[in-house]
Design a protein around this nucleic acid. Structure first.
Lengths: 153, 153
DNA sequence: TCCGATTTAATCGGATCCGATTTATATAGG
DNA sequence: CCTATATAAATCGGATCCGATTAAATCGGA
């Protein structure tokens, strides 16, 4: 090869939107770790409990829609939370294909206990700034999920 | 328990900043999947190649700082990319503790091939909107990584 | 010089995340 | 009624991600 071949001037990794999201997700995981460790659950387990606290007695599919996960990921997590005593998994008698997931009293207590420990201050953002950014990220998520497969995008 | 006990009015999961970042990261992974599948690499493998293309001949630690990963995650990925022929891993003769990672010609070619396929349009954002949001997310990441462990934040 | 402390990768086990498949149940059409 | 199709959850293998530990090399002070 030609050692003097000019290197194309591509955008830097540090300016990639995907990498900003990816690495910020890693940062959140690390910031949350000590808090959730004290509660005895992982991040994904925690958001499952929060979602159930908002709407109890959901099917695995319905819960998965809210968490953007499917049964292949959710089932093992829900089984783990069941062994921990935070929820129940019961087949729906009306349709045995479905599994209804419900928080136990311990599960509700855990969510209310964890409510005291948020990372709002750790974001270093003013309330309005926080609100605007959160909505912008959600808009980005919606666009990514809805975008048509376009060969030249 | 008291079945009529009022349910506290906590923020909704849909308004959590952490969940916006988490779920948007999932959305990016899904949007990128077909593109990277055509290239034959995963997302993490891809950003490792991009980072090496920008600065070649880095140690595992230095590369890890840029990717926000450590050797426990990076080593298996780099080994995989080595077997795929995209990079070389060589102990530094000056300090045998360190491993120098370098792209092969095939690795550079892959990065330049993938440069044509970005998801900028899929974000549905105007250029200025994109730039502002990207910087805001990076700022959030920085704040999260630097925040002092505060019991009441 | 010598040996304890430090540094760097690598290894290991546990928990996601995902594509693909399987199992069980429900539904619809003949 | 009976079967082909559809749907929901579970299972499985591969690839991260991380805390904790290990192995090897280097450094530094007595």
């Amino acid at each position: 090869m030609d050692a003097s071949a000019p290197k194309p001037n591509y955008p830097k990794l540090a300016d990639f939107m995907c990498f900003a999201v990816y690495s910020t997700n890693l940062a959140y995981g690390r910031a949350y770790k000590p808090i959730l460790e004290a509660l005895g659950v992982t991040y994904t387990q925690w958001i499952a409990i929060v979602a159930l606290w908002e709407d109890d007695h959901q099917t695995v599919s319905t819960l998965g829609e809210k968490l953007f996960l499917e049964s292949n990921t959710l089932t093992p997590i829900l089984k783990k939370l069941e062994t921990l005593g935070y929820l129940r998994r019961e087949r729906d008698p009306k349709d045995e294909r479905q599994v209804i997931v419900s928080l136990t009293q311990a599960g509700r207590a855990l969510r209310e206990q964890g409510a005291q420990k948020t990372l709002v201050k750790a974001t270093g953002l003013e309330p309005e700034e926080f609100r605007v950014l959160q909505k912008a990220i959600v808009k980005l998520r919606t666009n990514l999920l809805h975008h048509a497969a376009d060969p030249a995008d």
